[in-house]
């Protein structure tokens, strides 16, 4: 399988972790540091799925999801929200913004891969 994933997180540690978790599963990982950067990286990239953090500078996860969904070609791209909060209202807000699902940090690499496979094959 050659899945392509865009991961957006302002924490370098988290980006490293995501890359570490996904690369061994043969997933092509593209990284961005915040929402604005994410939109830039997304340009010209057709990821099979997007992973995004919520709390980020410049453009947070909700804004980012909004912006992604505004683009015709990414209307149906699965987006997983990475969050330390398991609070239901956060999940609901993410969903309202158009998120497909969520992963609660700290994530298990296998779970992350599995979640991606669940939403994006």
């Amino acid at each position: 399988m050659s899945m392509k994933v865009l991961a957006v997180d302002d924490s370098r540690t988290m980006r490293d972790m995501i890359r570490m978790a996904l690369m061994p599963a043969g997933i092509e990982v593209h990284l961005a540091e915040d929402g604005v950067h994410g939109i830039e990286v997304l340009d010209g990239l057709s990821p099979d799925a997007i992973i995004t953090d919520i709390n980020m500078p410049r453009m947070d996860g909700f804004g980012f999801i909004d912006a992604v969904r505004d683009q015709e070609e990414h209307r149906a791209t699965p987006i997983l929200v990475l969050t330390t909060e398991s609070a239901p209202e956060l999940k609901m807000r993410a969903r309202e913004a158009g998120a497909t699902g969520w992963i609660v940090k700290p994530f298990d690499p296998a779970k992350l891969v599995k979640a991606l496979q669940m939403v994006a094959g």
């Binding site: 302002d10 924490s11 540690t13 972790m17 709390n55 500078p57 330390t84």
Partner: peptide, 22 residues
């Protein structure tokens, strides 16, 4: 208003990473 967000995010990110390392 961004200041408190920065403050919050800093603590939040530390928590996130710390969780990953148990």
């Amino acid at each position: 208003p961004e200041t408190i967000n920065v403050v919050f995010r800093a603590v939040h990110s530390i928590k996130g990473g710390a969780g990953a390392f148990g």
